[in-house]
Write a protein that binds this DNA or RNA. Structure first.
Lengths: 143, 143
DNA sequence: AGCAGTCGTAACAACTATGGTTGCGACATG
DNA sequence: CATGTCGCAACCATAGTTGTTACGACTGCT
């Protein structure tokens, strides 16, 4: 399980809910979503809980329970999903503090941090350009 | 793991070698580099082996052995280092193949792949803007 | 020829992250 | 009160990363 599939699964879940609601259903259950994603309902609930914390989804409990979107698909960007689901930075600095006596060891952290900030800003800009509505349109166009 | 510190450590090692050579030394040993990075020499050798495979560094064996750069620091970008050291894609698709009967499950892979390709292209562009010479200049300016 | 220093590489442990699974309590609708 | 679903904790398996030890291979020097 190398890389991050959380953004993929989260986008999948939200898009599925959006399409399901658009077809007239009130709520989507984690089991339905898990079937489409091909995973366990608990995995979906864990992920949707993060999205709820970010204000992108909401859940109802009790009988006839399930998940809903809080916004239109066109108002959710992949950046929103990414930030809700991937807290950590893209690149880490050193595992252990480098030698402060060494010029390079002392100065490379700040120098690289500046670059990494720029890279992450570019990544966010790029992710913000696509909404889940765009994703759904692509899906339906290819079908 | 958390995130990837390989790019950081690799950039550190190459910059260190570059500065050391600039000061008149022939080769740098993995132990010297490991001291500055604050890690084990084997970790450095493992990483530098990948950089050698990518043509950025070279090693001599035997007595008086050690590592050298194959290019000037100004001719090595962080993109070069990144590609030498981080093979995998930034975002993964689903852990398990999603339900092909479902419209979303069937179409979301290609749709997201297109977006991810764009994001990675932006990331590469951003990383290519900085050379190790730039990094070293920042380090020396801050010292 | 032998010694010493360094790389090359394999093997292993520790730690962390992720994904998957089970179980059970909480809750609201009918 | 019965049912279906979420909430959440606990646990396991797998895998990636880092650190460490060990030993063989190689080469410059004496």
């Amino acid at each position: 399980m190398g890389a991050n599939s959380r953004l993929t699964v989260a986008a999948h879940a939200l898009t599925w809910i959006g399409l399901y609601q658009r077809r007239g259903h009130e709520v989507a259950t984690s089991e339905q979503i898990a079937t489409s994603v091909n995973t366990n309902p608990v995995v979906i609930r864990r992920l949707l809980a993060q999205l709820r914390k970010a204000g992108l989804a909401d859940s109802r409990r009790g009988a006839g329970a399930g998940w809903t979107l809080t916004r239109e698909l066109s108002a959710i960007t992949l950046l929103d999903v990414h930030q809700a689901v991937e807290p950590g930075p893209l690149f880490a600095l050193h595992p252990a503090e480098p030698d402060p006596e060494c010029v390079v060891g002392h100065g490379i952290g700040p120098a690289l941090s500046a670059v990494y900030d720029g890279v992450e800003a570019a990544l966010r800009t790029e992710l913000a350009r696509t909404t889940l509505e765009d994703v759904l349109r692509d899906i339906l166009a290819a079908a």
